[in-house]
Amino acid sequence: ATVFKIATVAPDGTTWMKEMREAAANVKAQTEGRVEVKYFPGGVMGNDVAVLRKMKLGQLQGGAFTGGEISQVQGDIQIYSLPFLFDDLNEIAYVRKTMDAEVKQRLAAKGIVPLGIAGGGFAYLMSTKPLRNQHDLRASKVWVPQNDKIAQVAFEQSQVNPIPLPLGDVYTSLQTGLLETVGTTTSGAIIFQWHTKVKYAFDLPLTYVLGVFAVDKRPYDKLSPADRTVVDREFAQAFQDIELAAAKDNENAWQTLVKNGVSFVKPDATEHQAWIDVGVRTRDAMVANGGISKDLLDKILALKAEYQSQQAAKP
């Protein structure tokens, strides 16, 4: 049997792992045991850099990454996560329907095949201090994930001097006051227990969070076409379910946050425009520094405009 050893930082028992295990069981059954998927959850295989190294050495055949993490292989995979690129999830769904294939292809060209991309919903800024505008943000201690190029550029564009820390250190740092402001999805805030620390949230979709499940192209290409179809289908299905579950989790989490006394503050029109401008400047900077391809961005912007005009035309 071909064994795919997959690393993920998600702890065992999460929705994500349940779906992934189900997909693995289906793949094994439907390929009559020819393809086996084995997981190493909880980050035991190390961080993203270590996992990518191990994939090159053939110790691992795949991993689950955030868009930011996998962008060190190919930047365009992170394109949906450009800040303030999208206004709502329907818009993204419309764009992704056309664009996913091409985005995946660009990563596959680098030897890593994304079997699934799952949107984790929008990230919001949350803080232990009142957060009403960019001025408040600049005055607080803001977390930026290490190696997240887009977030770093975006903060640069809004003149925020963020504090880079690994994910694992964020909770303690919120506790100790080393950090005051973090960006995450509503369900992320609960999973990492940050919701017990933050009191204020900025009601503005910051960026679309992306989870990517990718495998090494070499063993993948060695599968028979029939087996490959099974693998593709089962993981596509799993990721659809994960995305649906994530959307629901986020909604419930929003309620939990509100119940926990977190107040969501909506920006006014000027403030909103200021953020949109940051988004545009970030896009330009990412294109300029080669992090994102211009042709891909243009296609996405065209689709977005198409969707918006369709919406406007609706009665």
Partner: peptide, 13 residues
């Protein structure tokens, strides 16, 4: 630096 709100991206690595 952190106490004074300044983070240097490259210092930690």
């Amino acid at each position: 630096l952190r106490l004074f709100d300044v983070g240097v991206v490259w210092l930690d690595p």
